[in-house]
Simulated scan of single mutants.
Amino acid sequence: MNEHILLIEDEEALLTTLTDRLRAEGYSVEVARNGEEGYHHGTRNVFDLIILDIQLPKRNGFDVCRDIRQAGVATPILMLTARGQLVDKVVGLKIGADDYMTKPFEMIELMARIEALLRRSPMRPPEKEEVQQFGDLRVDLRGTEVTREGKPVALSAREFQLLRYLLENRGKTVSRGELLKEVWGYSASTYTRTVDMHIASLRQKIEPDPKQPQWVHTVPGLGYKFAAL
């Protein structure tokens, strides 16, 4: 296993419990006890997953998540909080978190969430070209970094996974069902607009003109494709 996890948590009892359990499960764990330290670890080192508490000293979890994404890091982020308000979950997901758990939680559920995120982690090495360039858009598949004109593009882990899948099938039309199955792990028969919403968000971030996309094309009635060069 040996996936590398960054745990950003200031509650010592929970920190110890989570660290011990994760290591017992075979994960490599690095710890940060405040938001400032967590941000620096998360942007300077390579991790397969970040577990991030919201209520942190020095810099709260929302700010850490947002700033990590703005730095161009697409590592999956699982947020932890004692809050139970829906608005906190919505905010977390909008700024780039990939999953969210409210304390107190069952350890078995947390482990299942971690495994699910790691299975679809963009950190897994691709078999194709590691760096691809499209006009002013540069995609580093291994480093999980995307830049436009040399500036970081803040993609969520799911947006990065979507972009990577489209790139791996460049020039081929992929259906919404295929994307749901391969990127989200859902049944292809699941009805949801999440693919369309993520495509729209991805275009806003990587296209020079999102209303007239140069790279991510819609194929009416069939799905989407990344333009062939």
Rank of each mutant, 00 (worst) to 15 (best):
L162N: 00
L180K: 09
L110S: 08
T144D: 04
M197V: 15
V29I: 02
Y165M: 13
T16H: 13
G72E: 00
T144A: 07
E149T: 14
R23M: 15
I8T: 04
T147P: 06
E109P: 10
E168Y: 10
R119E: 12
Y224H: 05
T218K: 08
S121A: 09
C65T: 04
N60F: 07
K103Q: 12
N2Y: 12
I199H: 06
L52F: 00
P126E: 07
V146T: 04
G221H: 08
I206S: 01
D10P: 05
M79S: 02
S121V: 06
Y186Q: 11
H41F: 15
T147S: 10
M111D: 11
V183E: 00
D48P: 06
D48F: 02
M197P: 10
K103L: 04
H198S: 12
K172W: 09
M123I: 10
A71W: 07
F105K: 03
S121K: 01
L86A: 14
D136P: 11
N169R: 11
P220C: 05
E127C: 09
V146D: 01
G92L: 00
I54Q: 01
T17G: 12
I108T: 15
R59T: 06
R203M: 08
R21L: 13
V153Q: 03
L18W: 02
L80N: 02
A24V: 11
R176T: 15
G84N: 12
Q204H: 12
M101T: 14
K211G: 06
D10S: 12
L18R: 02
R83S: 13
E130I: 08
M79A: 06
P104M: 07
G171P: 08
I5A: 01
E37P: 03
R33E: 15
P125N: 08
R138A: 10
K128G: 14
D20M: 14
T102N: 09
T75P: 02
L180D: 04
G177K: 05
R203N: 06
P220H: 01
S201N: 10
V146W: 00
E11I: 09
G35P: 02
I95R: 01
G42C: 07
T43H: 03
G61M: 04
